[in-house]
């Protein structure tokens, strides 16, 4: 770990009730990069990112963001500091319009001040959403809902955007579009932390990847290098 990391997680422990889903997890994300967490179902990936976003209180360990210790802060505090999670299952507001969904993304002071500019930017990025701004979020297709979830996240002006399983349940063509979009957002300067079961595509994207098993990082390295790792090959790629 270096002091230049945007996000660093050390010895993180968390879980629901008595059972810990995450125990002693360490990883770090350098600014301007794409980091990927991969691992089987139930490895603790979603718990990890929900802790970083402030939705679950950790039971141990430290989280540092941009040089500041942020362990145990709640969601509003994390969003204020520039951490935004696009959650698994999207969690868009189904009975609210596309525009209202986007406004919900812009609650923190910084984002509220730049609301008009951010709205233009998001609509330029997602013309489909601009066409459907008055339509109910829940009435759109799965791919469009995923776009809306990402767009809502962008409205908060994140410095670190965490995406939890963005390709889940989408058609292959839409998955490719989503990965392209992630690359584009990263090129615009947003640091990305991606959680994926789609191991092959996400590792190709990753500057750095972490393999998680039973709540711990068991392997890490540059994404393309890990693609050749024998363990990754047998465990995730079915080779």
């Amino acid at each position: 770990m270096t002091t230049t990391d945007l996000l660093s997680v050390q010895g993180l422990a968390a879980g629901y009730g008595g059972a810990l889903a995450v125990r002693g997890l360490d990883f770090a994300v350098a600014p301007g990069t794409i980091a990927v967490l991969v691992g089987a179902n139930g490895a603790g990936k979603t718990t990890t990112v929900q802790v970083i976003a402030g939705a679950i209180r950790p039971s141990g360990g430290t989280i540092r963001f941009d040089g500041e210790t942020v362990t145990g802060l709640d969601c509003p505090a994390m969003v204020d500091r520039g951490i935004t999670l696009v959650p698994e299952g999207r969690l868009i507001f189904a009975r609210m319009t596309v525009e209202e969904n986007l406004l919900m993304g812009a609650l923190n002071r910084r984002a509220a001040a730049n609301l008009a500019r951010n709205l233009d930017r998001v609509f330029a990025l997602f013309p489909r959403l601009a066409q459907r701004r008055g339509q109910l979020g829940g009435s759109m297709s799965g791919g469009e809902q995923q776009m809306l979830a990402i767009a809502r996240g962008l409205m908060a002006e994140p410095r670190l955007m965490i995406l939890d399983e963005p390709s889940l349940g989408l058609a292959p063509k839409v998955v490719a579009e989503t990965f392209g979009l992630i690359r584009q957002l990263n090129a615009e300067g947003i640091t990305i932390l991606l959680v994926e079961q789609n191991v092959r595509q996400s590792l190709q994207l990753a500057d750095r990847a972490f393999v998680i098993e039973k709540g711990r990082v068991v392997l890490s390295g540059a994404g393309p290098t890990l693609l050749d790792d024998p363990f990754v090959k047998t465990a995730f790629l079915g080779l």
Partner: peptide, 14 residues
Amino acid sequence: ATALSELGARLCGV
């Protein structure tokens, strides 16, 4: 929004 999805709203900073 909170009624529709509490977690979704919290992640927006609510």
